[in-house]
Design a protein around this nucleic acid. Structure first.
Lengths: 197, 197, 197, 197
DNA sequence: CATGAATGAGCCTTCATTCAT
DNA sequence: AATGAATGAAGGCTCATTCAT
């Protein structure tokens, strides 16, 4: 009952619109509702009925990926190694974020258009936070990073991998950048981070 | 003598336009040449005469900051400690980038509007590259990072510090993120970065 | 079915726009889409929706006249006298061209905006070409003129009749000029055209 | 004393401006006074001082050609053959008009910017008129053409030769069209121009 | 529910002309 | 005389959103 049960034709239109939007976002084309309507072979009004704003549509496109991330995230604590659990989670997340432009945008924004998005993002954050806290408690993470830093850092890595980088090199680049960051995030007992000796 | 010496009245307008643009950028308002003209109390044509595109104007606004960074960067090698020289340089750069929105944009883009911008960015990159290489040669930096990663990483840190962060917390946040990243960039002989033990 | 069947209100706007455009062209006012919109009491966007460029609008205005010419042209071969058939066709065409400024422009240009225009012009040319060829075969036309000369010559006559001539004298003038030209085009066995004897 | 004696530097600028304008017109570039100024390496104000309007400049460019035509035209009556004198004059004129874009425009317009232009055009018309009248009196020209038709017809031929014709084919085309026209203009005692019999 | 025509604010850009220097 | 910066009206076009059908 979260989603109203759509009539069959309405559902078909909904699907087409989302599919078109996904394709456009993947190609890097900015979401214009008129444009989406034309390509989905649907009236503009129909698009507006289903998705009052471009953001609502974008978030709808991002939702499945967000759900997958959350689902995986909820299984992460099963790993006994707190650090490995955290890095696994972050790796998976950054991969998704770099590969899926709809996610990139949705993660970077604070004001969501759909409640569902807020909910998923909140869950994802909570999961990440728990993994981070556990790792910090285990002494595996530098103490000055809080769960509130997780999303910004991931967005930053994703952004860094996007700037000046060819599309198909991005995932690889993101891995390298995440690795460097994680090495820094990893606590090194006895290390004095900003000096050379 | 790089820039043709302007007549006094022309110079006044130039200043006003640049000042207005700086203010707008600082407020996060997108640069629109008509808008700039109105606020600078100058004809549109005048703005177009001085700055054929918004990018040219933005880069002009960014230039002084870019020059300061370059100047400082060229003094950085004076520091005998390769790691300290590098981190000092990066710290200064990220501070500037986070504090000055015009810089953020100019650094992230590859196609420059002004030759001067290209020149400055090239110099800055070269300086950074030399500092990185020296630090790597000294065994102070993980080997998988090249000088081509410097700018993207800085942009990523700047971006991360901007996302979800209140304007006046940004510099602080950027420092923390840079610190974490630098800790990771710093080579730790005998460290096995992705495992917890 | 060539043109998609328009909704009633859309059709009304379409008519108004074309009517306004026709009036403007007849008055010799250059076609400006914003101007047309204002006078048709319609949003600019509406004009752009129907006619992406001024040329498309101009050609739409010219189309009916072009269709009439073509229709008549296709009946011209019915006249047994090749020379009379040709002159009749040309007379009719020049009359239309001089009387209708939209036609003048459309005929003079090579790049058409609408496929329909291209089609009509091609047909008209073909018809003219056949009439000319038949007349030449009958020995009624000087041999150095080809069907490719027909349109330029007509445009030239129309232009000559327009230059330095008051609007309401134009048709008469055009007749005289066409008559002179036709007299020259007409083959005169035994005549030595460029000498006085 | 028609032209004020210019200071040497002023004269130099005048020359440069006219030279640039001639070049632009020959290339088919529309005359823009700012543009001319830039290319002539002269201030806009200077161009405006010498030539208050684009037309004044264009006419200045056309003047020498106009003077040459007039000069030749005044010698034309020397030819004893009235028809040959007329055709020679017209041929020369059409050649100039097709080859020199500045002339094309100046001839087609009724309102002149410079008195000198009006004077020259008047003289040219008068000369042409006399040649035509003499030829008509000699029975060599159809009676329905008056001297007022000469310029329009020439403009028409020039225009016809320009429409749909590659630049370097124009003079040749113009010759053919003029020949056809002249054949028609030529009186043919006993000819009934619009019937085939 | 769906449609898609209509709207018009808003942005961009050019260019003829003026006028202070 | 010469300069060229400044002006701003004018025109072009797009696109998010509404609403009659």
């Amino acid at each position: 009952m979260t989603t109203a049960p759509l009539r069959k034709d309405a559902a078909r239109n909904w699907e087409r619109i989302v599919a078109v939007a996904r394709a456009l976002l993947d190609e890097g084309v900015p979401l214009q509702l008129n444009d989406v309507a034309r390509r989905a072979d649907v009236g503009v009004g129909t698009v507006y009925r289903h998705f009052p704003t471009p953001e609502a549509l974008r978030e709808t496109v991002a939702t499945p990926a967000l759900e997958r991330l959350t689902a995986h995230g909820e299984e992460a604590p099963a790993d006994d190694d707190p650090w490995r659990a955290l890095t696994g989670f972050l790796t998976r997340t950054i991969e998704a974020q770099v590969a899926d432009p709809s996610l990139t945008a949705v993660m970077a924004v604070t004001a969501d258009a759909l409640p569902r998005t807020t909910e998923l993002k909140r869950t994802l954050s909570a999961v990440g936070g728990r993994l981070l806290d556990r790792a910090r408690d285990a002494g595996a993470v530098r103490p000055d990073l809080t769960s509130a830093d997780l999303v910004p850092l991931l967005c930053g890595v994703a952004y860094a991998a996007t700037v000046h980088s060819a599309p198909d090199a991005r995932v690889g680049t993101a891995h390298r950048y995440l690795a460097a960051l994680l090495a820094g995030v990893h606590a090194h007992p006895g290390d004095h981070s900003a000096s050379s000796r």
